[in-house]
Amino acid sequence: MKNGKRLVRTMMLIGILTMSVLALSVAAVAADLTGKQIIETVNNAPVANDARLLMTMTLINGQGQSLSRQMWSWKQGTTKTALVFLAPDDVKGTAFLTIELPDYSNDMWLYLPSLGLTKHIDANSKTQNFMGSDFTYDDMGHRDINDYDYKILREETYDGNHVYVIQATPHDPQEAGYSHMISWIRDDIWKPVKVEYYDLSGKLEKIQTNSKIEKIDGYWAITDMTMENVQTKHKTIVTMTKIEVNTGVPAEVFTSDGLPKLLGLVPQQ
């Protein structure tokens, strides 16, 4: 009996010790996660083979006047995006193709229906604002993770979720268009919920808020986002609806020759 009790106590002690070691190991792994690794995890999150969606972009100036544009977009993985404007009439049929190359530079094409022209666009345009919005083309795409240094500033709770707050500082601020960015990353779904962009003089320039993140057919997608320029008081709201994934987007959608035909490929709504 005494040996039996001793055995039980020993087993319990071993169990407690094992649990403690395991808990410490997990804590050690989490503590070892660097800012760059967090960003890598965000970039490597699973994405659908392809997707198509309806996007509405509303521009609001400092006087509260607004202008809305509606576009249909197709995506292949994270590297190819084609979109065609549906409204208003002054941009309807204008189409845009961007293909991210292995070195993270972009091949961009633009179709201008009134001129019947498909143009290859200068890659330096990536720091320009998209269609008068507060998003640059770079903001809407991917940045080369190796072009930045990352630092975990802190962990906190944002909208009830645990987030890492990461500062990204570009090696070439002039090329990036910003002195640095600060991102709030949810570690349950590895998506940013907020990003602050600081101009070249270090002042806060823009705040991006991803207010709605939904799981669509197993993939997390940001479906509502706002970019506010705190210096100009201009704001852009982007809403994505009718999202369908893995429907098999035709390859011609992602070619420059296919741009003039995109309007005809928009699904019936």
């Binding site: 961009m108 201008l112 009134s114």
Partner: peptide, 14 residues
């Protein structure tokens, strides 16, 4: 060769 300038020409042509 830029996007903004090209889009502006489209608006102008329309």
């Amino acid at each position: 060769h830029g996007i903004q300038s090209s889009l502006q020409i489209e608006l102008f042509a329309r």
